[in-house]
Amino acid sequence: MSPPGLVLRHASLTFGDRPLFQALQARFDAGSWTCLLGRSGSGKSSLLRMIASLRLPDNHHLDLQTSDGIPLAGRVAWMAQQDLLVPWQRVAGNVMLSAHWQGRPTAADRRRAEHLLAQVGLADKADRWPDELSGGQRQRIALARTLFADASVVLMDEPFSAVDAITRLELHDLASRLLADRTVLMVTHDPLEALRLADRILILQGEPARLVSISVPPGDRPRSLDDSELQRRQAELVTQLRETDDA
């Protein structure tokens, strides 16, 4: 399963009668990790929802092409800011939620769920109820659920913003390792997160918004925090995001 690249054309979104963006274009390379930044209300989450074909209240349009020509439907995994664990399934059941919802999980599904739980370091929690776990643990289960779908394109909307700073760094390492061979598109508010994880950073800015590409620090991801280059770029990136607001 080699992941497809994505090409976006004519993306437009109107909020009420205010156009958030029009005729937006972007290309996401196969197997790359792209972070999408922007101020609140810039429409970045909406753009992600459009790519995922999720419900949106506003007027929107998008031409989406995949590099292999096969439609994206059924190949997308979705991860949100909330862990979205369902309280009526135990931890293992939440990991293989797609199997539960589409029918009945097979023995192979169960083994796969156990394997993924071990990978996120929660093998001993398989039979617990989700509400017995901490926020960080729950988000790790959400990550395991995202991986279970075995989708080659992973769309994430601020997936690590609701956990504490240390847990977030741990989740970066984990996600970066486990999502290595997939095309990842992640919306985030956190410039540092983007600089650690991304092969490419895009900022949605202006009114109506355009996509601006930002260079990332060299080196393999997740990039180390004590990288001086990373620190320098973070300052730049924050300045750039602030300018968006003043413009």
């Binding site: 995922a52 999720l54 419900r55 439907a73 949100a80 369902v86 939620l97 589409q102 779908a149």
Partner: peptide, 13 residues
């Protein structure tokens, strides 16, 4: 909750 419906949508239910 909309989030669960979003998951259902991406699972293709």
């Amino acid at each position: 909750p909309q989030g669960w419906l979003d998951l259902a949508q991406t699972f293709g239910l």
